[in-house]
Structure formats: C-alpha cells, structure tokens
C-alpha cells in the first residue's frame, strides 16, 4: 500500500497549502520588498497599501460569490468607471451622501442586468460581461465626453482619504466592515447557504427548493454593489472620476485575487479570507514593484503570469487533495 502513504503525504501537503500557503506567500513577498526597498518598510506606506488594496479587496468579495456559483464577470472595470462618473456627476445636484447612495444603486442595477442576461437568457457569463465591458465603458465616455469629473464634496472625499482618529484610513475600515458583512451573509445566513449550495451542485440545489436563477441574479447584483463601493472609494482617493483611466485591468486584478485566494473557477465553496489575502498580495506586489522602480510594463507581464500561476496552483491543490484531475 505504498500508494496509500504517498496519497496521505500529498493530502497533508495539500491541506497545509490550503491553510497556510497564501499567508506564507504574502509574508515572503513582504519580506523581499521590505529588505530590498527601504521606502516599502514605513508604516505610512503599509497603511497606504492596505488602503489601496481595498478597491480590489472589496470588489473581490462580490467576485468570490459570483465565481462560487460557477460564473465570472469581466465587466467590472468598466462598471467601476461608469458608476464613478455617474455618481460623482450627481453631487452638485443632490449632494455627496445621496450621490453615494445613487452610485451604489446604479451599480446594483448594472450587476442585476448582467445576472438577468446570464440566467433568464442563458447566455454564458463571460460573453455577456464581455459585451457589457464595452457598453459600460462607452457609456462612461459618452456621458462625460471623456472629461474627468472632479469631486470636491467632502463627504464623498472622506471615503477615499478620511482617517479615523487621524491614523486608520477610512477605506481600510470600510473594507473591514464589508468583509464582516460578507462573512455574516455567507456563513451565518440562509442566503449564504443557498449561494454555497448553488455553487457546489446547482442541480441538487434546485431539487432542494432553491431558486437557482434568483441566487445567481443576487450574486451578480451583490457584485455590482461591492464594485459600487470600490468606485466611490477609488474616485474619492483620486479626487476625480476619469472615464478612461479608472478601472483599467481592474477585472483582471480582482479575478486574480479570487482565484489566487483559492476559489475554484468551476464553482463550489469559496474562501473570503483567501480572497482578502490574495487582494493584499496583488496590490502589494504592484506597489512594491513600483517602489522598486520596476518598469510598469514588466508589472503587466507579472500580473498575467501571476494569474496563470494562480489557476494552475488551484488545480494542483485540488489534485493533491484528491478532488480532481490535474
């Protein structure tokens, strides 16, 4: 039974990797940057990075839900830009607070639209969201005539630059709240159970009386909501909403984070904690490379490689745990 021992070792390694692999990667990466680049080490830079990672991190929550149900959404970069320009342009008329609410509402509607296309018309998610990617971006351009919307409302700006007790950047706090809420939703509420059930076996979920279409529409809408929050914090941090520049490669970073975080592209139970740490890795990696003055084009190459690496790694993990073929 040497097969058996080998399998046990493989399983042990797989389980170890599943629990500690990501934090380990993060620590190693952090150490490398900290040693090689002095400016990386400062508390200021650390908090700043954490704050930046909230854009990817918050949207990754929604994307985790969507990928758990076996779909994915590549329209979110454009959605981010469209929501930011629409919401911020309303500020002069309705004020910052209502502006944020309307921005989130619009984001939910856009996500809902994706969900309807995917479920009721049974169009594969990637092709629906590919179309939406261009529609949203074009609408953002047309709406603003390709002129950035400058934001001067203090309430809105606080979402990107505000600091609690003058230390903790508000986006970090917001990210914490979002993850807390998402955890409660996924692990403590009936709806969370339904999302996991639909992800792990949609046919069994349907036989258990769950309306699979509605759950899928819900997760797309939730993704819209989280992208909306990212749109507000991101535009607040920049002080403006730029229809062309905002959300470039955003979908890419978010999907990388979720996949690197251990949620399988084929659906099933996902990991919010994994998405969170992976979002940190993706952001810190970019920032660290920036501080090391790595050419930004190299960074593009690196992010692409990380994505392929992340998917292969997941396959490897499931293979080691004996849950799939490599």
């Amino acid at each position: 039974m040497e097969d058996y021992r080998l399998r046990k070792t493989k399983q042990k390694f797989g389980a170890f990797w599943g629990n500690f692999g990501l934090p380990l990667i993060f620590i190693i990466m952090f150490a490398i940057f900290a040693i090689s680049t002095p400016s990386f080490r400062s508390t200021y830079n650390f908090l700043n990075n954490l704050s930046f990672s909230s854009y990817v991190g918050i949207a990754a929550i929604g994307m985790t839900f969507v990928i758990m149900t076996g779909n994915f959404d590549i329209s979110i970069g454009s959605m981010l830009s469209l929501v930011a320009v629409l919401g911020s342009s309303f500020i002069p008329k309705i004020g910052g607070a209502v502006g944020i609410i309307s921005a989130l509402l619009i984001a939910c509607i856009l996500g809902f639209l994706n969900g309807i296309f995917v479920t009721k018309l049974r169009i594969p998610a990637f092709i629906t969201t590919l179309g939406m990617l261009f529609v949203f971006r074009a609408l953002a351009f047309i709406y603003t005539n390709n002129v950035p919307v400058y934001i001067s409302d203090r309430f809105w700006l606080y979402f990107g630059n505000g600091k609690l007790f003058d230390v903790i950047p508000f986006p970090i706090l917001l990210m914490g709240v979002c993850y807390g809420a998402a955890y409660l939703l996924l692990r403590r509420s009936p709806v969370g159970r339904y999302i996991i059930a639909v992800g792990t076996n949609p046919r069994a979920a349907a036989l258990s009386g769950i309306n699979v279409d509605n759950i899928k529409i819900l997760v797309f809408t939730l993704l819209g909501l989280f992208v909306g929050i990212s749109a507000v914090t991101n535009s607040a941090n920049l002080g403006s909403a730029n229809p062309g520049l905002m959300g470039q490669d955003f979908e890419f970073q978010v999907i990388t984070a979720v996949v690197l975080g251990g949620t399988a592209l084929s659906g099933g139970n996902g990991s919010l904690g994994g998405s969170f740490i992976a979002a940190l890795i993706v952001t810190f990696l970019n920032n660290g490379m920036g501080l090391m003055q790595v050419n930004s084009y190299w960074q593009m190459v690196a992010t692409g490689l990380v994505m392929i690496f992340a998917v292969s790694l997941n396959k490897l993990k499931f293979f080691l745990l004996g849950q799939g073929e490599f």
């Binding site: 509420s189 009936p190 159970r193 996991i196 059930a197 979920a205 036989l207 769950i210």
Partner: peptide
C-alpha cells in the same frame, strides 16, 4: 444531484428548512 459535496453533513440535511431556523426575521441562522 443529491449531495452538496462542498458542504457539511449538517448543512446538507438542513438546507431545505434553513430559512425556518433563523432569528432576526430570517436574517441569521
């Protein structure tokens, strides 16, 4: 189409009635 393989034994059993086993108007299990 029977088992929900990513879920626990208990969650598999209670999936149909989970909505009734809640507090705060069905918010939390």
């Amino acid at each position: 189409e029977g088992i929900l393989y990513d879920m626990s034994v208990m969650q598999n059993l209670t999936i149909v009635v989970i909505k009734a086993l809640t507090f705060l108007k069905g918010m939390f299990v």
